[in-house]
Simulated assay, not measured.
Amino acid sequence: MIISFGLSAALTRAATAVLRATAPGGREPWRRENYAGRSVELYAGPAAALATAVGVARIRPAAGVAVAVAGVCGAYDDFAGAGDPRRGFRAHLSALRDGQITSGAVKLLGISAAGLLAGALMKERAVDKVLAGVVIAGAAHAVNLVDVRPGRAAGAALALGLPGLLRKGPGAEMAATAMGAAGAVLPDDLAERAMIGDAGAHALGAALGAAVVAGSGRAGLVAHAAAVVAAAVHGERVSALAGGGTGEGAATS
């Protein structure tokens, strides 16, 4: 677990440094204003997603793919969805029904499909496959829901990963991997120099969901699936009442 944590943290730091030095597409797309109007950078999010996906894939390839897809879909929403006022599942699904494919809809459908595929490959029985998919995709969304202030998503990933460390085996290693990436980005996130955006939040959440799947039986899957569904329903209600986003800044939706 210590090795998984350390490798993930080191890769996150290295990837952040590379992205900051190269700034693909120019520096302006990598800047956002956070909730307080301060300018922050987005490099940490894709870096954390990359490190987490690589680390998880080393343990469970199917789970690594789900984490990678969550990160890519989140990154797409970070950049393509910047400035889109629509928030919540209902708004994006309504737009999709009207023939508009929003970045939020791409994120929702892509992460859900990847979670279900990973769950199908990680579990044997049909019911467990579905529950596992719900847990992975739901956990990805749940971590993103708390990304409303600096450090909350990364801090939540660290807190949620702790119980997973008590288990032995692949679940503990995946939890440690997510925690390593979260720990690497937390100082800059708390200092309001960076935000992890949807790319980082969704990837960290998917990894934690995969860790739960790897270490849980039917009862555990049911409990965690119920928890992430409840979080999604609550988040949808809060978003509707607020009339706005659930993210720390324009990068999150």
Rank of each mutant, 00 (worst) to 15 (best):
M1E: 12
I2R: 10
L7G: 07
A10T: 13
T12L: 10
A15W: 02
A15D: 00
V18S: 02
L19D: 08
R20L: 14
A23T: 14
R27P: 02
E28I: 15
W30Q: 10
W30K: 04
W30P: 09
N34F: 02
N34W: 01
Y35M: 07
A36K: 15
G37Y: 08
G37L: 09
V40L: 09
A44N: 06
L50T: 11
L50E: 08
L50W: 06
A53W: 09
A53Q: 12
V54D: 15
V54T: 15
R58T: 15
R58Y: 12
I59E: 15
A62Y: 12
A63F: 11
G64M: 06
V65F: 13
A68L: 13
A68N: 02
G74L: 06
A75M: 14
F79W: 14
P85V: 00
R87H: 13
F89S: 13
F89W: 14
A91E: 14
L93Y: 08
A95K: 08
L96N: 11
D98C: 09
D98W: 00
G99A: 05
S103P: 06
S103C: 03
A105F: 12
L108G: 12
G110Y: 08
S112Y: 04
S112N: 13
S112D: 10
A113K: 01
A113P: 09
A114E: 10
G115F: 03
L116I: 07
L117F: 15
A120E: 09
L121R: 07
L121F: 06
M122I: 09
E124L: 11
A126W: 15
V127W: 05
V130N: 04
L131I: 08
A132D: 04
G133S: 08
G133K: 10
V134E: 10
A137D: 15
G138I: 05
A142I: 13
N144R: 08
L145T: 05
D147R: 04
R149C: 04
R149T: 05
P150M: 00
P150T: 02
A153S: 15
G155M: 03
A156Q: 13
A157Y: 04
L158E: 07
L160D: 00
G161P: 02
L162A: 14
P163R: 01
P163F: 00
P163E: 00
G164A: 02
L165G: 06
L166W: 11
G169M: 07
G171V: 01
G171P: 07
A172L: 02
E173M: 09
G180C: 02
A181C: 07
A184V: 10
V185C: 13
L186F: 09
P187Q: 00
D189H: 09
R193H: 14
H202A: 09
L208C: 03
G217R: 05
G220F: 01
V222L: 11
V222S: 02
H224C: 12
H224Y: 12
H224A: 14
A226N: 03
A227I: 09
V228K: 04
V229T: 15
A231N: 10
A231Q: 07
A232Y: 02
E236K: 11
R237W: 15
R237N: 12
G243L: 06
G243P: 06
G247W: 03
E248P: 06
G249C: 01
G249W: 00
A251E: 10
T252I: 01
